[in-house]
Design a protein around this nucleic acid. Structure first.
Length: 257
DNA sequence: CTTCCGCATAGAAGCTACCT
DNA sequence: AGGTAGCTTCTATGCGGAAG
């Protein structure tokens, strides 16, 4: 997806949220029960999450964060800077400019989520310097940019949701699924995706928010003195243990009442 | 044909015991 | 104390079979 398409989708989400909120405010949506209201609010929340991710994506693409337009690594097929590409269909990576950066990715969330230690690192520092290989021009294989060794479940989850997912979607869209399979770390990507999926399932099945579900997995990891890769490398037993301990904990709390 | 997943394995890192 | 060999653990990766 190029920057113009990203902006279009972004506008649609904003309009969607505005419309629902307007209807709610003016009682145009019949609130005939708790579930209907919950669904509506969930829908707004979902759009809002996507908006945050897309905003971040746009900032990344445009390098707005450092206000250095010269550092914009995207250019159009006619070699125009991305800011002047209105109407152009494709954007490409400027390899020369890109080589000045060790990474891509966003830093805001990950600067604050490490609960294990006082380590303050940005995702930029945690992702390998290889993003340039995301283009066909650099050979048959490439590597999906992911945090190499996530220290907490939160770190993995937010990296996956906010950065990896979008990157993968773009890679598939741009080069096709068969090329995407050539990623050297596709197996790691699949394992992380499976873990993220299990976290979301737990959240849905027990009707708890994502933070609480993340905490369940994080607690199990800490209890066993293990790493995050241990979680997604032993997912079956991990999921079983998480569910067991969560149910146990809930029963205890129930008995306490 | 594509995608997913289990299994085996290589390599890195950490730990311990032993030697100089 | 410093160096090193040997062992264990952890993680990433590739292969191949199963399922859709």
């Amino acid at each position: 997806m190029n920057i113009n398409q990203t902006i279009d989708v972004f506008e649609e989400r904003i309009d969607f949220c505005s419309e629902i909120l307007r209807k709610l405010k003016e009682n145009e949506i019949p609130i005939d029960g708790e579930n209907r209201l919950k669904d509506t609010l969930n829908s707004i929340q979902q759009q809002n999450s996507s908006i945050l991710i897309e905003l971040n994506l746009m900032k990344r693409k445009l390098k707005i964060d450092d206000l250095e337009l010269d550092s914009n690594v995207f250019y159009s097929i006619n070699n125009d800077p991305i800011l002047n590409t209105k109407g152009k269909d494709f954007v490409c990576l400027d390899e020369v400019k890109l080589s000045r950066y060790e990474t891509l990715g966003h830093t805001d969330v990950l600067n604050t989520i490490d609960t294990d230690s006082n380590r303050i690192e940005t995702r930029d520092k945690l992702v390998k310097k290889q993003k340039v290989n995301c283009t066909k021009a650099f050979g048959d294989t490439f590597e999906i940019p992911m945090i190499e060794n996530p220290k907490t479940v939160h770190e993995l989850y937010y990296d996956f949701q906010n950065c990896v997912k979008e990157t993968v979607r773009e890679l598939k869209e741009k080069y096709g699924k068969s090329y995407f399979r050539k990623a050297t770390n596709i197996r790691s990507y699949q394992r992380r995706r499976a873990l993220v999926s299990e976290i979301q399932k737990l959240s849905e099945e027990y009707d708890i928010d994502i933070e609480e579900a993340l905490q369940c997995f994080e607690e199990l990891r800490k209890e066993n003195y293990k790493t995050v890769p241990w979680l997604y490398s032993n997912l079956l037993t991990v999921v079983h243990d998480v569910r067991e301990s969560y149910v146990l904990e809930k029963n205890c709390n129930w008995n306490d009442i």
